[in-house]
Structures are given as C-alpha cells and as structure tokens.
Amino acid sequence: MVYFLILFSAVFVNNVVLAQFLGICPFLGVSKRVNTAVGMSAAVMFVMALATLATYLLQNYVLVPLHLEFLQTISFILVIAALVQMVEIVIKKISPPLYQALGIFLPLITTNCVVLGVAIQVVANEFGFINNVDAMGNVTHMMNLAQAVVFAVCNALGYGVALILFSGIREQLELSDVPRPFQGVPIALITAGIMAMAFMGFSGMV
C-alpha cells in the first residue's frame, strides 16, 4: 500500500515538473520530439535511482554518524557528477546501443535539478503517509532505503509522463501558426501552465 501511495503521489499529485518545478530546463529543452523525450526520461530514471541509492547511504552512514551534515550539498553534487560519468563509461562499454540512445542525454543530467532535488528531499523531508519504526522503536515519517529508491523511480516516472505528454503537444504546436512574440519558449510555458492546471485536479488526494 505504501508503495502505491508513493507512486501515486510522485507521478500525479506532486509531479516533479508540474507541481514542484524541478528539471524545467531539460523539460523545455528536449521536449521538441517525442523520441528524444523518451530517451531523456529513461536516462533520468536510471541515474535518479542510482543517485538516490548512493546519496541515501552517504547521508545515513557517513555524514550523519560523523556529524558532517553541512557537507550535504557539496558531497551530493559530487556523488551525482561522478555517478553520471561512471554510468556513461559503463554503458559505453557493455551496451553500445543503449549508449547510442541515452549517450547525449547523460552529461545533461548532472545539472538537472531533479536528481539533486529528489536526493535532498528523500533525506530531509518527512512524508505524512509513511510510518516506519526506527531502531529505537519510535515511529518515523522518514523513508527507508527501499522506499527511497522506489520514490526516486516514481519521481522519474512522473518526470517521464510530463515530458512525453508535453513533447506530444509541442510536436503539434510546431505546425500551428503562433504569433511571433509567443514563438518558442513563451508558448511552451503557457502550454505547461495549462497542463499544470489539469494536474492540479489531483492535488490533495494523498
């Protein structure tokens, strides 16, 4: 049940793009074609799951025991940057077709705030619908490792849903006659605004 709540909340209610404004730059940048949008979403999902796993372990087994929480921002971004680089090298070696498909998107992901944003949320936020029991026997609303990874994957799914839907609309927009000052980014933003309005229908459900 809790995993379903995580899924529903991450994909629809608190959609990373349309409700939390994370990852807007690639959202506007790579959403001109449906197939690039699919590639980008897959790459984000892959990196985000790994990054959240790594940063969760880093936070709970290195930074907190050593009282180094103030290094959170620096260490998280370094871990993510290193991870992206490593993923790129590994994919290039073991699966050239996958590298062909994801390759160009990987370097972009380091500066995609979705990855860092979700990693920080997982270790910093409390989630009302989660009731775990910690080592002391107290109830805590923090996520455990499995929930954190699922949360990351679901957020990436939400990102993918928004990105792919949006790219479908933008393909149509290219064929329509848009007034000159509206061309490009402004009309895309207004479209996203209307999409966000539609997603607001889900608010308050979890």
């Binding site: 349309l18 409700a19 404004f21 000052p181 509206f182 980014v185 402004p186 009309i187 895309a188 933003l189 207004i190 996203a192 605004g193 209307i194 966000a196 309005m197 997603f199 607001m200």
Partner: peptide, 17 residues
Amino acid sequence: AFVLAPGAFLVLGYLMV
C-alpha cells in the same frame, strides 16, 4: 491559481512575451 503551480508558468510565459 496564480500562487499555485499553473500561475507560475502562465505569468512567466506572458512576461517573456
């Protein structure tokens, strides 16, 4: 709506225009 998510996109879009 303008304080919530949709307003952000709409206002930025129109200001950019």
